[in-house]
């Protein structure tokens, strides 16, 4: 059209698209954060990330082309005084057929790597060393069993680097979802259904995991750690986990053990192998002192945090079962100190 500059529409279109692209590309990706999907530390996460980039760039190119055309049209065809009535065009058959077919072709191209990765992720690899792990979800903590090793632990999953971990997922109550972003996408843990997923960690490290399916009041506080060990560290850890709990070595810890087994009634719910504590309800505490975190990944495993948790579980994780048994003020600060010392000593 005469008299219509193209500079403004082009500038506006590039500006609009540019702001979004800059924003997304500059801030969207923080691989150094603990649950970022952008730092894949294993083959499953890597396949998913590569596929993500593939579809991301396909979508971004479509975004650029369509929004550029759109914003250009918005500015270029804005009304000026004295504009005549525009031509009353109703369509253009070849054009319309073309932009029906073009996306279909793009989508068909996207579908190929998608289906390929889909089958690789959802079928267990035939090769390589395997380790079987049972992950059992409870409101709101995690139980990890290693049937082939005879180990039972909680809230921290150790796996050796370079080994395929075949993880059987179960739930004891509602639906949860097992997710360690840096190792792979999530799979739901459904009561009465046995889902199996596989993961592998390439390098030793501590990876954050979290329940991803809404599971009730404590959902946000249902976290865990996946620890990928070197082969040697994993063997050491395995050997340690097979041991029964050690006897307390300090006076405070011994006093704590007596409360644990007696007045505190902790043993009714928790198991400490090698002692009289055989409660099947809560997390196995045989080697809690060797864990990085407590209360399903919500606090570092320190003496003070243990005492704080035992003093007021309801305050720290509302709705949890322990809070119905232990109410604030049940234990004196000496007793809390003893209990924390005892648990801390269970290396």
């Amino acid at each position: 059209m005469n008299g219509r500059g193209r500079l403004l529409p082009i500038a506006a279109a590039i500006g609009f698209v540019g702001i979004f692209l800059f924003w997304i590309l500059y801030y969207g990706r923080t691989p150094e954060t603990p649950q970022s999907i952008f730092e894949a530390a294993g083959p499953v996460a890597r396949m998913q990330l590569n596929l993500f980039w593939w579809i991301f760039w396909a979508a971004t190119i479509v975004f650029i082309v369509v929004e550029l055309a759109f914003v250009y049209a918005l500015f270029h065809f804005r009304r000026r005084s004295g504009d005549p009535l525009p031509a009353q065009t109703h369509g253009n058959m070849p054009l319309e057929i073309g932009w029906t077919i073009a996306p279909a072709i793009i989508l068909a191209i996207i579908a190929v790597p998608t289906v390929s990765v889909l089958w690789k992720v959802l079928t267990l690899p035939n090769e390589g060393v395997r380790l079987e792990v049972e992950a059992v979800a409870h409101q709101w903590w995690w139980e990890f069993n290693y049937p082939s090793l005879g180990i039972k632990t909680a809230n921290e999953m150790h796996i050796p680097a370079g080994t395929v971990a075949v993880i059987k997922l179960e739930s004891k109550d509602v639906i949860h979802s097992f997710w360690i972003p840096k190792l792979g996408g999530k799979l739901d843990m459904i009561p009465g259904q046995h889902n199996v997923m596989w993961l592998q960690g390439d390098e030793p490290g501590v990876y954050y995991g979290q329940c991803a399916e809404f599971c009730g009041e404590g959902h946000a506080l249902m976290r865990f750690r996946a620890i990928v060990d070197t082969k040697e560290d994993f063997d050491k850890w395995t050997a340690l986990q097979k041991q029964p709990a050690g006897a307390p070595t300090t006076g405070a810890a011994a006093a704590g053990r007596d409360i644990f087994m007696g007045k505190g009634a902790c043993a009714g719910c928790h198991t400490v192998r090698g002692t009289d504590a055989r409660g099947p309800v809560g997390p196995d505490l045989t080697h809690i002192g060797s864990r990085l975190t407590i209360a399903a990944g919500i606090m570092d495993n320190t003496h003070d945090n243990l005492a704080k948790w035992i003093a007021d579980p309801e305050g720290l994780k509302p709705g949890n079962l322990m809070g119905t048994v232990i109410t604030k003020g049940k234990f004196s600060s000496d007793e809390l100190n003893g209990l924390a010392s005892y648990l801390g000593s269970l290396k």
Partner: peptide
């Protein structure tokens, strides 16, 4: 026109969810 500009973004992120293997990282 705001609808169109924003719906394009929502539609494309929807397409990203349709790709189920990488959606396993996005779901929930």
């Amino acid at each position: 026109v705001g609808f169109i500009a924003m719906f394009i973004i929502g539609g494309l992120s929807g397409l990203m969810h349709a790709v189920s293997p990488s959606d396993a990282q996005q779901q929930d």
